[in-house]
Design a protein around this nucleic acid. Structure first.
Length: 156
DNA sequence: GCCAACGTTGGC
DNA sequence: GCCAACGTTGGC
């Protein structure tokens, strides 16, 4: 079982969107970066837990927890010319892009803002802190525990 | 809205 | 295969 951090712009998909569809799984699609793709295709597995991060807003923050319910499979939005994520180079026979499915687990009692994450020496090695734009990134068990504690979640 | 970081594209 | 140009991400 592994831990991850997934970024999303809340304007397109937020923890609230996930929370308001109880029991439903959501496709985490549209990832169009090779390093992130490799994680989705090869490493993200059912049962893994995810820090849900809101990016590109005045106070970016970790806002909740999701669980992976299906590991990497071809991102079919790449096959659809009508999709904003369409990629003519990807096809069902040789897909380039991958997606996973997640379900809602919890919202943080207190969102953990990027500013606090940057201020915690235990979290200094996170790609997030090192100004990486990577939208799917691994999280160590220690980082996971630290961020959950900062967010007031003691029971996960 | 700006712009730094950095990934991708394409000419050579 | 290099690298300049270009596009995107995402913090501020």
């Amino acid at each position: 079982m592994a831990y991850w951090l997934f970024k999303s712009e809340p304007g397109s998909f937020s923890i609230e969107d996930l929370r308001h569809r109880p029991g439903m799984t959501e496709h985490w699609d549209g990832v169009r970066n090779y390093q992130a793709r490799n994680y989705l295709r090869d490493a993200v597995k059912p049962g893994d837990l995810v820090l849900f991060y809101h990016s590109n807003i005045p106070e970016p923050a970790v806002v909740g927890i999701a669980e992976v319910v299906r590991g990497g499979y071809p991102d079919y939005t790449a096959f659809n010319p009508g999709s904003e994520h369409f990629d003519p180079k990807s096809s069902p026979v040789s897909p380039i892009w991958y997606m996973v499915d997640v379900r809602y687990v919890a919202a943080m009692p207190r969102p953990v803002p990027l500013e606090q994450i940057k201020g915690n020496p235990l979290l200094a090695a996170m790609p997030l802190v090192k100004r990486s734009r990577l939208s799917i990134q691994p999280v160590t068990p220690e980082e996971w525990r630290t961020i959950l504690a900062m967010g007031g979640m003691t029971d996960l």
